[in-house]
Design a protein around this nucleic acid. Structure first.
Length: 195
DNA sequence: CTACCGATATTCT
DNA sequence: GAATATCGGTAGA
């Protein structure tokens, strides 16, 4: 039994305040979202297993990293029993160690923006498909949960989803400057079809 | 601060 | 063909 064996919604708030370390940078998690579980139309796992989401169906305590919008990576912690898809998206954090290294990965950005947003967090920690499926505590990664539970947890709808916007499955540390501001899903924009 | 837009791989229709 | 768990740049209030 590990802290990651329960449902995504149960595990998500436990990750707030946790310290995630990879390649010389440590981030304190300030914002997460739950995905998957029994029946979640907002999850990559909703329509079954694909090459991309395979790790979500595996055992808890591993990292699920995916590539999206043709240029960004996003990282999740896989949760729940083996065979049941579930994950907690790491949406934002504050860099607590390796600040110079994190800055070098995003030159010019203000400190609080270094890991503000799921793709920025991956950039700060240098997470990509090389660590997809890696255990969160192993050779490459370290994830340390807070010793005492955090108190100022806020909860609301997930960011950027058209599916199931009513589910309050986003959790964040209230008052933290590194938490991304809420954006409802953008309406579909038509692709340019002519020159 | 808000609003829009382009970049563009993976997945689905 | 079209949407997407996004972001950085630019324009404007």
């Amino acid at each position: 039994m590990t802290p990651f064996d329960d449902t995504p919604v149960e595990v998500a708030p436990r990750l707030l305040g946790a310290l995630l370390t990879h390649r010389g940078v440590t981030v304190r998690l300030t914002e997460v979202e739950a995905y998957g579980g029994a029946d979640d139309p907002g999850s990559h796992s909703y329509r079954g297993r694909t090459r991309r989401n395979t790790v979500m169906f595996g055992p808890a305590g591993h990292l699920y990293v995916y590539f999206t919008y043709g240029m960004h990576y996003c990282a999740n912690v896989v949760v729940g029993p083996d065979g049941t898809p579930g994950a907690v998206l790491l949406r934002a954090g504050e860099v607590t160690d390796g600040l110079d290294l994190a800055r070098s990965r995003r030159p010019g950005a203000p400190g609080r923006d270094l890991a503000r947003g799921p793709a920025r967090l991956c950039r700060a920690l240098d997470l990509d498909l090389a660590v997809n499926g890696a255990p969160v505590n192993g050779e490459e990664l370290s994830l340390v949960l807070p010793e005492t539970p955090v108190v100022n947890v806020a909860r609301g709808p997930r960011v950027g989803l058209r599916a199931a916007p009513e589910r309050p499955w986003r959790f964040w540390l209230d008052g933290e400057p590194s938490v991304s501001s809420y954006r409802p899903a953008a309406p579909p924009r038509r692709r340019r079809t002519s020159i």
